[in-house]
């Protein structure tokens, strides 16, 4: 893919994620989904930048807020939206909904309802890669809320001592539900904290998709060379509440507006591409139209898909090989 196509593809993916999330949020508020969602609007550059640096068969394991990671890993809008409606055509065949998107066979080791548990599984996947002698990496996504739970640092320590091909990506939207990261984080500097484990650790602008991509590409090369894990704290922001319909008072409207206006990852990237002559208005307008069509198709597809059969609730709990 040429530079123009690659850049436009990244931009379109971010636009698709934004449209997906805003559409899903409206559907959730109207009771059309199986529960609420954790909206990732504002965090698109983290997902798209990371996946742009990975090979298709690299592994990811992620968090409760993972629509953007999942879509960026080339799961279709149809199968993600269908999962939000718990339809059998969904990523997790309707058993997971918004918070449990995953397909091991496609290198997606799952969203997760438990903070930082996905990153631990990502560490385990990295161990599997190393034991199998494969040339791949595993990305463990974790939020800022996962920076103060013990399992995070247990996993990072283990990845460091064993030099596992793990990239820890902090999708740091700065708020753990309603708790601002700086209120609860001793020392303040997450990268500095991580660097105490003897691995490369940095904080980058998570609203800049190219900066994200390049940082992950470097971490990937570092891991493939056998040097072990990297910790990348990506500073980003979510435009919506922690969960659908949240009416929080924990941050100001001015703060949200400031991020939307001045640091929006999509607008920044589009402006850059215009400036560099890699995008023209007609193409940008076409993208908006095609993204809208893609998401509307995903909604229609999902609404027309069946729910899993209640008679199948006992299927695939285990392999059956241990049943007497």
């Amino acid at each position: 893919m040429g530079a123009r196509e690659e850049m436009q593809s990244m931009l379109r993916m971010m636009m698709m994620i934004r449209n997906f999330e805003e559409t899903a949020d409206r559907l959730a508020l109207r009771g059309k989904l199986s529960g609420g969602i954790h909206n990732s609007s504002g965090q698109e550059a983290v997902a798209v930048g990371v996946m742009s640096a990975l090979a298709p068969d690299d592994v990811i394991a992620t968090t409760h807020r993972s629509h953007h990671h999942t879509l960026a890993k080339n799961f279709s809008a149809r199968e993600v939206m269908a999962e939000l409606m718990t339809k059998v055509t969904g990523v997790s065949k309707g058993r997971g909904a918004s918070m449990h998107l995953g397909d091991v066979a496609r290198g997606h080791f799952g969203g997760n309802g438990i903070v930082a548990a996905g990153m631990g599984i990502g560490m385990g996947a990295a161990l599997g890669i190393k034991m199998a002698g494969d040339k791949k990496v595993s990305v463990g996504f974790v939020g800022d809320g996962g920076m103060n739970t013990g399992r995070t640092w247990e996993a990072i320590n283990m990845a460091a001592i064993w030099k596992l091909p793990l990239i820890v990506v902090v999708d740091n939207n700065q708020y753990a539900v309603e708790t601002f990261i700086n209120r609860v984080t001793a020392g303040g500097d997450l990268a500095k904290r991580a660097s105490g484990f003897g691995l490369p650790a940095s904080t980058i602008d998570g609203q800049n998709v190219i900066e994200v991509r390049d940082a992950v590409a470097a971490a990937r090369e570092y891991a493939l060379a056998g040097n072990g894990p990297t910790f990348i704290n990506m500073l980003t922001y979510r435009y919506y509440g922690h969960n659908t319909g949240e009416k929080g008072q924990y941050r100001t409207l001015e703060e949200i507006e400031d991020w939307r206006t001045h640091r929006d990852p999509i607008e920044q990237f589009a402006a850059r591409l215009f400036k560099e002559g890699l995008l023209d208005q007609a193409t940008y307008d076409e993208m908006k139209v095609s993204v809208e069509a893609e998401i509307q198709d995903a909604v229609e597809f999902s609404e027309n898909s069946p729910h899993p059969d209640p008679s199948e609730v006992m299927l695939n709990i285990d392999s059956g090989k241990l049943r007497g």
């Binding site: 548990a117 631990g120 599984i121 385990g124 599997g128």
Partner: peptide, 14 residues
């Protein structure tokens, strides 16, 4: 936690 997580992820990997 990391011991079991290591096992879970490695098992998922094959």
């Amino acid at each position: 936690a990391a011991m079991v997580a290591a096992g879970v992820g490695a098992a998922m990997y094959g």
